[in-house]
């Protein structure tokens, strides 16, 4: 047999011995990921077709019942309850993403124009909430929305809530919590693009009497698209699966897919149905990643 010799990083060796050594390096980490990520993922797919026993145990009878149930076909006929929750999750993720983007642009422009010394300070100020525990950041809104504070009083005066009651749980509180949670996820990648922005192009557009809207869409947006698209995907995908924010700030009134999954693995003890919902969320995730990849290819053409 012919051995293929090659020089690799200054070492004269054969492909076969390199691959042998390479496998030695790959195997611990890859075996771990296969054992605790890929394999459980596949098991989850299988379980999503199984059924629930009388005591919440898994029964290995495979059918499409869980998916039918998710689509709304229950013992009492068709109801849209679960589909509404799925749709609401997509909607909340979408609104969260849009609001985060809208707020991130001025913030990034502001930071990019600070003098270098204070710029890092501002940037660190955005990074800190990014790393702060999400339970703390969510429940912190309890205090701001408490009945004793001006915000709830104002809402009570306007007749939006009854006096003496807090502004949570409510859809409004969920949006507040979600946007404040994910804003740094948009702002940080966006900032890396804004920092490299070529302002001469923006000034050229202004010199040519472009309207403010056209300056943004044709001079600023294409240049910041790489950072923006990373931020959008980093927000949209996890926002769909979020369950802490709706659990604490939305209560039973504003359930999202994340809460539904958690319920099946917690109180309801219906792992098979929980697995099926997880698969639904996975499909939504894959679909958004697919859109993102297609869009970002288009973006390259645009720039």
């Amino acid at each position: 047999m012919k051995r293929k010799m090659l020089v690799w990083y200054g070492e004269l060796t054969t492909t076969r011995s390199l691959i042998k050594r390479g496998l030695l390096f790959l195997s611990p980490g890859m075996l771990w990921l296969l054992a605790f990520l890929v394999l459980p993922g596949l098991v989850l797919v299988v379980v999503s077709f199984a059924s629930r026993g009388a005591y919440g145990e898994l029964v290995w009878e495979f059918n499409l019942e869980n998916y039918k149930r998710l689509a709304g076909f229950g013992i009492f006929g068709w109801s849209a309850d679960y589909l509404v929750i799925v749709w609401r999750s997509v909607w909340v993720a979408l609104v969260t993403t849009v609001l985060s983007v809208v707020l991130s642009y001025p913030l990034c422009f502001f930071i990019a124009r600070r003098p270098e010394r204070t710029r890092y300070l501002w940037l660190t100020m955005v990074i800190i909430p990014f790393w702060t525990n999400m339970v703390i950041r969510t429940y912190a809104w309890f205090l701001i929305l408490a009945p004793e504070l001006p915000f709830a009083r104002l809402a009570a005066m306007l007749g939006l809530v009854s006096p003496g009651s807090p502004l949570y749980p409510s859809a409004f509180a969920v949006y507040l919590g979600m946007v404040s949670m994910f804003l740094p996820f948009v702002a940080l990648p966006l900032y890396s693009s804004v920092e490299r922005l070529d302002w001469e192009l923006v000034e050229a557009a202004q010199d040519l009497y472009a309207s403010r809207l056209r300056v943004f869409t044709q001079a600023i947006l294409p240049q910041t698209l790489p950072g923006l698209s990373v931020g959008v995907i980093l927000t949209f995908v996890p926002a769909m699966g979020m369950f802490v924010v709706p659990d604490l700030l939305g209560g039973a009134k504003y359930m999202l897919v994340g809460n539904l999954i958690q319920q099946q693995f917690g109180a309801s003890r219906d792992w098979a149905f929980g697995a099926a919902i997880s698969m639904g969320l996975m499909v939504l995730t894959m679909f958004s990643l697919y859109l993102y990849r297609r869009k970002s290819k288009g973006a390259e053409v645009l720039v």
Binding site: G41, V237, P238, M282
Partner: peptide
């Protein structure tokens, strides 16, 4: 990195 962490959590519970 990309999948929502709740899916990983669900997979781990089952596993």
């Amino acid at each position: 990195v990309v999948i929502p962490d709740i899916i990983l959590a669900a997979a781990l519970v089952v596993a």
